[in-house]
Computed example of a mutant assay.
Amino acid sequence: MNFATLAVHREGPVLFASITAQPMNLLGPELVRDLVSFISQAEADESVRVIVFQSADPDFFIAHVDVGRIKAYRDEAAKLTGEASIAVLFRYLSASRLISIAQVEGRVRGAGSEFVLACDMCFAAKETAIFAQMEPAFGVVPGGGGAQHLVRLMGRARALEVMLSADDYPAELAERYGWINRALPAEELDEFVRSIAHRISRFPSAGHVAIKHRVNSIALAPIEDFRRDSDLFGEGVREPAVQKRIQAAIKAGFQTRDAELDLSLLLGQLIDD
């Protein structure tokens, strides 16, 4: 498995994929293309049971989508699902026979948050992991399934707080809210994730499929709801008022590494004329 934005290594039935999409792991067409190919190849290999997503960048897991290339990354998603939608792509991962684990160190916002929500489990570093569902700062709904997951995980009030504030949430608070499985000390994270991944991989794959099917029938929203959110995001992001806020954010440093280290501050200072 050779990819431009993923470094993959294998430990028996477990695949580890480290995201390397410089300069700050934006979810653009190259990363989506590689995720599509990686998931496809892993599913085709029946000896693979668990996939673990990590980041080679200590500051960013997945920053968010590349707002300048929305059509391009949607077109890449369609190569797996037949639909130009990362919401449908992420839901595909949730429904896959593979057990997917996100190991988060650094920032994960917007579609990055939606990606880890689509994974079956998420474990994060207490000291460095930061989560945000910040699309409402621009006046649009999350387009990759964030609302579908967060309401089910947190309840109505906390999901509204998270999305309407568009703020950063440290790992320990994300754990308390139900956003992630556990927040662990960074020095323990690698070993914990490796241990649970291998433990799960030793159990029968038929059980993985049966359990995921039953859990998803209870907790995973119907695909039509993911499609609707994707459509609402696509329509909303084209609105002049939304584009104006995006351009104002870009002028202030949005999608540059230094500014996005404290994106919450940048977004909180945006004002409408």
Rank of each mutant, 00 (worst) to 15 (best):
V151Y: 13
F53E: 01
A132Q: 01
M154N: 10
L93Y: 10
Y92L: 10
L15T: 04
R69A: 00
R257S: 08
A78H: 04
E11F: 11
S40R: 15
G144H: 01
Q243D: 02
E224I: 10
R74D: 05
S264C: 14
D231P: 09
E76K: 00
I223H: 05
G143R: 01
L26M: 12
G155Q: 05
F203N: 13
L35N: 07
H64Q: 10
E187P: 09
I51D: 02
R257F: 07
V48I: 15
G82I: 01
R182P: 05
V104C: 10
R228F: 11
H198Q: 12
E127V: 04
D190G: 13
A248C: 11
L261H: 08
F123A: 06
V209N: 10
V67Y: 08
A219S: 14
V48P: 08
L117V: 02
D168K: 05
S94G: 12
L270H: 00
D59N: 09
N2L: 12
V116Q: 07
L31Q: 03
P23C: 04
L6H: 01
I211T: 14
R245P: 07
T256I: 09
D231N: 13
L232Q: 14
A132W: 00
D167W: 09
H208F: 03
H149E: 05
R158N: 13
E127P: 06
G268K: 11
F38R: 08
S100G: 14
E191D: 13
P222R: 12
N181H: 11
P23I: 04
P204Q: 08
I130T: 02
A171W: 04
A171T: 07
A77V: 02
A56T: 14
V32T: 04
V32C: 09
R257I: 03
V140K: 02
E76Q: 07
I99F: 12
A102H: 05
A129F: 06
R97D: 14
R199T: 15
M134C: 06
S100V: 10
V108G: 05
Q54D: 13
